[in-house]
């Protein structure tokens, strides 16, 4: 196709959009709604996933040893556990370190309460491994394995927290996929209706074009452009909205739930957009082009 022809298609496509402006706005509206919802859910799901993985890295399992275990055995266990593929990292925490950590966390600024404990470590049997996993789903397998190792007395897991977050995140994912699918279908339908109206409006012109030997591309081009423009505009508007409100909403959440500071970790808007922008544009233009092609196929016997 010549550039000039492409220019013609764009020009005609935009004229069509204008002539049909009510339907155009309606279709842009639905696509925008669709992609806005995609954007919102994508942001939520990404952040929840992000939090889950962050939390996962902070909540590992703690492996405690049987009384009187030798340092050699501890080193052996360290090697065995470290070699498991589920393990992301493993750290040995000696009884003294555990006690220091405990003191720091619970008695900071109130050290006078600790008088009498200066020499003796009340957690003297609490040496442990902190084991972090790469994927929380593998936790059960790993725990079963470690639990069976000689020298291990018990394992403390914080699985509930992560499991709850994980299932919430899955729920949101499934829900949003279903919702988005429905919205995409509605959008395709609306676009196809818009294009059908334009075809109706331009039937005479299309007929004349056929008589003077216009090619299919030439006749269909403007309608494809029409759909694509609706799709693109319909994608850009919600992207703008999400971009504008994202940081604002996050800082509000952070303020409100300041106590959950440790758990609430958000991705910067740039990290979200690096995938959301192409995704939205692809979906928007895709819906637009598919919508008009369907209509052309059905109503424009060239």
């Amino acid at each position: 196709m010549k550039i000039k022809t492409f220019g013609y298609c764009v020009e005609q496509g935009i004229i069509n959009l204008y002539k049909n402006r009510l339907m155009t706005l309606a279709s842009i509206g639905t696509i925008s709604a669709c992609i806005l919802i995609i954007g919102v859910f994508y942001s939520i799901v990404s952040n929840v996933d992000f939090m889950v993985s962050e939390i996962q890295n902070n909540i590992g399992v703690a492996v405690f040893f049987e009384e009187g275990i030798t340092q050699e055995r501890i080193d052996e266990l360290n090697t065995i556990i470290e070699q498991r593929e589920e393990v992301y990292s493993i750290t040995y925490i000696s009884a003294d370190e555990a006690w220091e950590g405990f003191k720091e966390e619970y008695f900071e600024g109130r050290e006078q309460l600790l008088t009498g404990f200066e020499d003796e470590n009340p957690l003297k049997d609490s040496a442990s491994f902190q084991v972090f996993l790469g994927d929380i789903d593998k936790q059960e397998v790993l725990v079963t394995f470690i639990d069976a190792l000689p020298g291990v007395s018990h394992i403390r897991e914080d699985r509930q927290v992560t499991n709850v977050i994980k299932s919430i995140s899955d729920l949101i994912k499934y829900f949003s996929i279903a919702l988005i699918a429905i919205l995409i279908i509605i959008s395709v339908f609306l676009i196809s209706n818009t294009v059908r109206l334009t075809i109706e409006l331009r039937k005479r012109e299309i007929n004349i074009m056929k008589y003077v030997g216009a090619t299919d591309t030439f006749i269909r081009g403007p309608f494809i452009i029409e759909g694509a423009v609706i799709g693109l505009v319909g994608a850009l508007i919600p992207l703008g909205i999400v971009y504008y409100f994202y940081s604002d909403i996050i800082s509000r959440i952070m303020e409100k739930y300041i106590l959950l500071d440790d758990y609430l970790m958000f991705m910067p808007v740039g990290d979200i957009f690096i995938r959301l922008v192409p995704l939205s544009i692809l979906i928007g233009a895709g819906i637009g082009i598919v919508g008009s092609m369907l209509t052309i196929h059905k109503h424009l016997k060239v």
């Binding site: 005479r204 012109e205 007929n207 004349i208 056929k210 008589y211 003077v212 030997g213 216009a214 090619t215 299919d216």
Partner: peptide, 17 residues
């Protein structure tokens, strides 16, 4: 389209835009 470009057509109702 290539065949149609060999022909011109005129109708009773003119069919101008």
């Amino acid at each position: 389209p290539k065949i149609r470009r060999k022909m011109g057509v005129v109708f009773q109702d003119f069919r101008l835009l």
